[in-house]
Design a binder for these strands. Structure first.
Lengths: 114, 114
DNA sequence: TATAGATATTGACAACTATCGATATATTAA
DNA sequence: TTAATATATCGATAGTTGTCAATATCTATA
């Protein structure tokens, strides 16, 4: 049952329910939710904070394992998720992989929250 | 093992690893991750989009179930999560519960993405 | 009271996820 | 080629989560 909004806090049983369609499409919702999923883990947020604040603009993956205090496979897993969400970029140089933030991506996500 | 960032893409085996501390504290990371968790589901994002764009500034829960296309308990569950994350506010008036967005909260979260 | 309807809670289940040890792959050096 | 090391993948497991049917709770009305 739908109800009518009444300004003076009275209650009405009149229906208003012309169910207009949803502003955010299902497709857009899925995509946005995927990015927020990538941001929904504290370990990933801390990784992102390290990478974003890197003085040289980038950080070697080898310098992330110890401070984060998780195993190397776990850190690798989280970095992959951040990368696939477009939140970080990476470049392999020799044996090492260097990560850098993608601020445009973060801004784009932030702007979706108005 | 840590490595030194070398500008010309050469590879060095010199260690740089004075593991400075992480910009985002564990506590802050937990809190932020909790909000992003609330935003990490497409159904909740669509609910939020309906509530945020309400012409009257608020929406009755009874007008959310049908458009979302999920069961009433499921919608109730998602609304609770949005509420507990501080993303929406609610007011019970009679039998109905009215939801409204909390734009300050969304802005606050958005600003954490720089 | 009793009934009807809106919302919340419970219980169960399937799907997903964070984590780690073990292992594989890739790259440089000896 | 062999050894050493950085990173990725695999397999397993414990914990989390989205969903619904059933049920409970709350409120207005007859």
């Amino acid at each position: 049952m739908t109800s009518k909004n009444v300004k003076d806090n009275a209650v009405s049983k009149v229906c208003c329910g012309t169910a207009r369609d949803i502003p955010l499409s299902e497709r857009d919702a899925d995509e946005l939710a995927a990015v927020f999923s990538a941001l929904s883990d504290p370990v990933r947020l801390r990784l992102l904070s390290i990478i974003s604040s890197a003085t040289e603009g980038e950080v070697c993956a080898c310098d992330l394992v110890t401070p984060i205090g998780k195993s190397q496979p776990t850190v690798s897993h989280h970095l992959k998720i951040l990368f696939e969400a477009g939140l970080v970029d990476r470049e392999k140089r020799g044996v090492w992989v260097w990560y850098r933030a993608v601020p445009e991506r973060m801004s784009a996500v932030a702007s979706r929250l108005r």
